[in-house]
Computed example of a mutant assay.
Amino acid sequence: MIRVLIVGTGTMARDHAQAYAAMSGATVVGAVDPNCANLQAFCTQFNIEESFPTIEDALGWGQFDAASIVTPDPVHARTTLPMLAAGKHVLCEKPLATNYADANEMAIAAQLAGVTNMVNLSYRNVPALAKAAEMVAAGDIGEVRHFEAAYLQSWLTQAAWGNWRTQDQWLWRLSTAHGSMGVLGDVGVHILDYATFAAGSDVARVSCRLHTFDKAPGGQIGPYALDANDSMAMHLSLKNGAMGVIHASRFASGHLNDLTLRLYGTKGGLDVRFEQGKSRLRACLEDQLQAQAWQDVDTPPVGTNYARFIDAIREGRQVQPDFHQGAILQQVLDLSLLSHGQMSQDQLVR
């Protein structure tokens, strides 16, 4: 039985607790949060016996094998590194960090510790994506030449998940002072991983533009300055020679939480979708190109990240996406911010 400690007891921590509770090979034995009220409510809800206000207290107790890090993005590094130093296996929420230096330090520390480490990029659980990556790797569409991907959300134009104007759980995502990288860090990392995983290659070059829309008088709601980016558009070249575009927005009215990806190769194309919670893969392969015929492809179920993390610990192996991949993605996010910041007045269309 793998004993898990959950670090951070916010909204996403409930997903972690529920996933481990559903497994026969894992059990949550403790939780950490400096907010005592949140911590106790969480432990009561999930029947967790041990609770700790600090990482140090939890490590002093030490009766756990692995940690799920569900803290705010800016403290992923300082809550993860002590776990790695103590030889604990770690599943960390995405993005791995908020800058490449921290992410790389975490990746190196995990490698030196020799522990199982994983970034919770949850759309790796989409069956259509897993099958598309398998088909690309098998050469079914030949050499990948072009791709286009989108992650579309509409929670800034509809209240399906709650009222962002009044709820802290959404407002912090709109404020850089509260640790948000905006849509780039929140969902951009997902669609970046989605596209590059399926295409079978990391990024070689990136150009990016970001935009923050006016959302409140003076751009402020209470303590939250609404200055984090709301929409992004990237142009990328991959190391395998493919090129393509990725865009994401929280203003995509009519799309609560939809991801799309199209991959085009020298022998065929793939259309990968996760829309309204449903996964679908279509292909136009070499013998169908002339007729432009697209066919549905069967996509077998994929184990969750939580289950694959626990299985990897039990079997003494590594699992993807690991911290090294998380650091690679973070470097692309950093370069995207740099690219946007380097746009000069001379580059503006007049």
Results as ranks from 00 to 15, higher is better:
residue 18 Q to C: 01
residue 181 M to S: 07
residue 216 A to V: 02
residue 325 Q to G: 12
residue 46 F to H: 09
residue 193 D to M: 02
residue 170 W to E: 08
residue 327 A to T: 13
residue 95 P to E: 13
residue 160 A to E: 07
residue 51 S to C: 10
residue 59 L to A: 03
residue 237 S to P: 00
residue 83 M to S: 06
residue 174 L to R: 05
residue 15 D to S: 15
residue 34 P to M: 03
residue 242 A to V: 05
residue 302 V to A: 03
residue 327 A to D: 11
residue 313 I to C: 11
residue 197 F to K: 00
residue 54 T to W: 13
residue 319 V to Y: 05
residue 308 R to I: 11
residue 176 T to V: 04
residue 237 S to T: 08
residue 344 S to C: 10
residue 21 A to S: 15
residue 253 S to E: 07
residue 132 A to Y: 03
residue 207 S to I: 04
residue 319 V to G: 07
residue 232 M to A: 05
residue 148 E to A: 09
residue 88 K to I: 10
residue 244 G to Y: 10
residue 143 E to D: 15
residue 56 E to S: 12
residue 334 D to C: 03
residue 177 A to F: 04
residue 127 P to M: 06
residue 110 A to W: 08
residue 52 F to Q: 10
residue 126 V to W: 04
residue 173 R to V: 00
residue 20 Y to S: 02
residue 301 P to C: 09
residue 100 Y to Q: 06
residue 116 T to Y: 08
residue 308 R to P: 05
residue 235 H to W: 15
residue 335 L to P: 01
residue 315 E to Y: 04
residue 157 T to W: 02
residue 273 R to L: 13
residue 230 D to S: 05
residue 87 G to C: 10
residue 277 G to Y: 14
residue 282 R to F: 07
residue 222 G to S: 12
residue 224 Y to H: 09
residue 59 L to I: 07
residue 235 H to C: 08
residue 279 S to Y: 02
residue 46 F to S: 05
residue 163 N to P: 13
residue 213 F to S: 10
residue 285 L to W: 06
residue 41 A to H: 09
residue 191 I to F: 00
residue 204 A to P: 00
residue 331 Q to R: 15
residue 172 W to H: 13
residue 125 N to W: 02
residue 284 C to H: 12
residue 348 L to A: 14
residue 27 T to M: 00
residue 56 E to I: 05
residue 29 V to Q: 00
residue 267 K to A: 15
residue 206 V to S: 03
residue 63 Q to L: 05
residue 294 W to G: 14
residue 344 S to A: 11
residue 210 L to Y: 02
residue 29 V to E: 01
residue 8 G to W: 08
residue 116 T to D: 12
residue 241 G to Y: 06
residue 83 M to H: 13
residue 347 Q to T: 05
residue 272 V to F: 09
residue 246 I to N: 04
residue 161 W to C: 05
residue 291 A to F: 13
residue 344 S to R: 15
residue 284 C to M: 15
residue 177 A to K: 13
residue 213 F to P: 03
residue 140 D to F: 02
residue 297 V to S: 03
residue 311 D to T: 11
residue 268 G to E: 07
residue 282 R to L: 12
residue 170 W to D: 07
residue 321 P to N: 12
residue 294 W to T: 05
residue 153 Q to T: 13
residue 229 N to L: 00
residue 198 A to D: 02
residue 45 Q to N: 03
residue 239 K to L: 12
residue 159 A to I: 03
residue 263 L to H: 01
